[in-house]
């Protein structure tokens, strides 16, 4: 029997309190960046709310194993790691609201931001930390929508069990793709990694593990062009970027890990973003709008890891606190 209680316990640990109409800091998103900011804010005794639309943990919560977060020499599951962060944030008083933020706007007359939610109306905050992370890039084939949930998946831990003794493809060559490929070998009989280059981008330690796994095969220099099948995925047609030759891989499932798109649509026009939508910040993690900060994967940053998101969270909270104090002093 597998371990039954992988996820630990409920997110509703604290007394269910009425949601206030106003907070010192509202943190949007409860991944490692947002949770770290919440820990720091709680310890600073700021009135803090974390608004999360899905489940606390963010993208890393679906990682089977995190090997590069300091302090866990034997690795730790993304779920366990973020549950601990969540517990720590709650311990120091952060309130968690399950909702989706629709927009953030600035009060014209007072030093406040208005955070508009889908189900809890508009909540006021002296400062806002954007920690909304990113979503996986969709597989760029015409059939994506048709087969999403019918063999195309963006969550290996969620859906691997549907592919016991089947052949699956993993599209991508970064850390997520290779970690997914390794995880999938526990279920699938064969895993084909489809990558557009002739070498992987993933960290060497993961590469070594993948290359030594007999269930993992590689389809180099290849991009996906079509997904084939009737009601569900039956094959993936790939094209060799050098020879233009097309090949059909007979697979039952396709796991996609080809990068992320930032969840920044709700602040577009309010803060500066890059062409791809990543939120631009200064060294204090402050955006182009004073009082609004950004951390983690949504931020324009060279490295997107749990440890960098956590670092961002600490800096952003520190900066937000300085900002609130300066406003209270009237400067």
């Amino acid at each position: 029997m597998d371990d039954f209680f992988v996820g630990g316990l409920s997110s509703q640990e604290t007394e269910s309190k009425a949601i206030k109409s106003e907070y010192d800091i509202i943190i949007i998103g409860a991944g490692p960046g947002g949770l770290t900011a919440a820990i720091y804010a709680g310890r600073s005794r700021l009135d803090t709310a974390v608004i999360e639309k899905l489940a606390p943990g963010g993208q890393i919560a679906v990682s089977d194993r995190v090997d590069n977060y300091p302090g866990f020499p034997d690795g730790i599951s993304g779920e366990e790691l973020t549950k601990r962060m969540e517990k720590q944030a709650k311990k120091f008083g952060a309130e968690f609201i399950s909702d989706e933020v629709r927009s953030v706007s600035e009060s014209k007359t007072e030093n406040y931001f208005f955070v508009e939610t889908a189900s809890h109306g508009t909540i006021k905050a002296k400062s806002v930390i954007i920690a909304t992370g990113a979503d996986p890039v969709k597989l760029p084939v015409p059939e994506e929508e048709k087969f999403r949930g019918r063999g195309i998946s963006y969550c290996a831990t969620c859906d691997a069990a549907f592919f016991k003794n089947k052949v699956v493809a993993v599209v991508g060559g970064g850390d997520t793709a290779i970690a997914d490929a390794i995880y999938l070998t526990k279920f699938a009989k064969e895993v084909i990694v489809v990558h557009r280059r002739d070498q992987l981008r993933a960290v060497k330690a993961l590469q070594e593990e993948a290359f030594s796994n007999p269930k993992i095969k590689f389809q180099w220099d290849s991009v996906s062009v079509h997904v084939l099948g009737d009601n569900k995925v039956e094959g993936l047609e790939v094209e060799n970027v050098k020879t233009k030759e097309r090949t059909v891989l007979k697979v039952d499932g396709i796991f996609v890990a080809i990068g992320t798109v930032p969840n920044s649509g709700f602040v577009r026009g309010l803060v500066e973003t890059t062409d791809r939508g990543f939120v631009v910040t200064d060294k204090n993690r402050q955006t182009s709008k004073p009082g609004i900060f950004a951390v983690g994967d949504v931020r324009d940053t060279p490295l997107r890891q749990v440890v960098t998101a956590a670092g961002d969270g600490a800096i952003a909270e520190f900066s937000a606190e300085q900002y609130i104090k300066s406003k209270e002093r009237g400067v």
């Binding site: 639309k53 899905l54 909702d99 889908a118 999403r148 949930g149 063999g151 969620c158 549907f162 499932g253």
Partner: peptide
Amino acid sequence: SKKYNVYAVPKVVINDKEQFEGALPED
């Protein structure tokens, strides 16, 4: 699961006629 072509979760089916995949916000 096969009856409803479940290959990804969560998958939600309402009265056999309306369905969606993935976690959606309440509204």
